[in-house]
Design a protein around this nucleic acid. Structure first.
Lengths: 238, 238
DNA sequence: CGAAGGTTTGACATTAGTCAACTCCGGTGG
DNA sequence: CCACCGGAGTTGACTAATGTCAAACCTTCG
């Protein structure tokens, strides 16, 4: 059963706070209940590129890495989905990306057919869908900018700042970051090699900008300096 | 007045031919009539990053370059809009990119408020909106892949092939390409410098893959070789 | 004809990638 | 308990690709 609670009346032009999570839709979508639970182990796939897009998923716990492959094996990580984020939303017919859990992950599946059913009767939901995908589009364009125009150092710096802001939005410690992904995932996300990512982390540590207790624990010691190194924030929804 | 003709009944899962134009929505959107005409000269802006998104536009003739700027002036071109393409669709509240005509361009403006009005009563239209933005999302992800994972030569080759396919879809000569944008636009689109773009064109010419009559006229002499140099196509909607 | 803007070309500098060795950590089994 | 193994991460030396700077070359347009 799919239940929707109606509380919001803002639509297309509704502005949204600049620090809102672009992949965590507000409005009706976030209030969906009654999906089918699903658990996947680390490295398992939720779906793969080309699979028929029969469901969308909300991440309940754990993390999911969304990526695409080139024929020769080069990989581009498109996004990392955190708890509360939806994955599979922008698919038309077939998934255009693969979704792989970076650790044991719980999800909640909603059938696309049910979505369509509801959308027919409730224009509000389809507008929310539109908004959710638009948010995702903004985020992807932002990323295009981040990755294509920035140097390795700037990419890593903005990556860390982005994770920091994500923590902040979730009410967690802004400057203590747990990386739920490997260096390989980060490298494929930022369009760099693992060696370059590693060297850049080391440089940031040596310069006193971050601490690196274990390789998955980053704490930001000098947020201002990190901001400066990031090449300037490109404001979402500006 | 905004008129919509209803002919299509396929929605979210409807697959779409692989060579469909991702920015030229099928269904209701393409059949919109009654928008407000607007003409902009070469280098004029249709809208700028941060402007309130009050209208969406359909390009009637000419070409529009969509880009974003970083604080220090670096520029990322997100897309080039051709006649029939919609621009401004994914905006939420404010435009996230600037839209600049590369030549004298005629547009047709549709008020966002009117869209919302219709969408309230016609779920089909909001689903079409959803699909249109989803298409745009796919295209942007594709581009992320193209630009982040490919070498300069591969980027230029796929760029030319993409333009060739666009010609084909419009029923024009697939192998004779008129570039409606400057080298600077291409460079900022592909994440390269104008020098690298220029050198790459020269190399393709010297290798007999393309002809370069004037700098805006490219003809593809060896499509197979160009395809090979592009590093493999990443199929849309795969 | 001359100026301006866009394009091409060359010499050189810099960044990031490649290849290879080494380290660190966690898990497994003797 | 400890040794070994494998995977992930780090570091170093070297290479290749792309960017930078500068000059020359076209076109177009006044």
């Amino acid at each position: 059963m799919l239940a929707v609670a109606f509380t919001s009346d803002e639509h297309i032009e509704a502005p949204r706070p600049a620090n809102a999570n672009p992949r965590k839709p507000s409005g009706l979508l976030s209030q969906l209940t009654g999906g089918t639970p699903r658990v996947v182990d680390a490295k398992d796939h939720v779906f793969r590129e080309g699979d028929p897009a029969t469901s969308v998923y909300r991440v309940e716990s754990g993390h999911v890495c969304l990526y695409r492959l080139m024929p020769d094996g080069r990989r581009q990580v498109m996004d990392f989905a955190y708890p509360g984020d939806f994955i599979g939303l922008g698919a038309l017919g077939h998934h255009a990306a693969s979704a792989q859990a970076t650790e044991k992950t719980r999800l909640c599946a909603f059938a696309v057919a049910t979505f369509r059913e509801i959308a027919r009767n409730q224009p509000s939901l389809s507008l929310n869908l539109y908004e959710a995908v638009s948010q995702e589009l903004q985020a992807t364009r932002e990323m295009l900018m981040n990755v294509c125009q920035r140097t390795a150092l700037e990419r890593v710096a903005s990556f860390l700042l982005e994770l920091s802001r994500r923590n902040e939005r979730r009410g967690e410690a802004a400057h203590d970051i747990v990386l739920p992904m490997t260096r390989t995932d980060i490298a494929d996300f930022l369009g760099l090699t693992i060696e370059t990512v590693s060297r850049t982390f080391t440089k940031l540590r040596q310069d006193g900008v971050i601490d690196l207790e274990q390789c998955i624990l980053v704490s930001i010691r000098d947020p201002q300096k990190l901001e400066g190194l990031s090449g300037g924030r490109v404001e979402r929804n500006a």
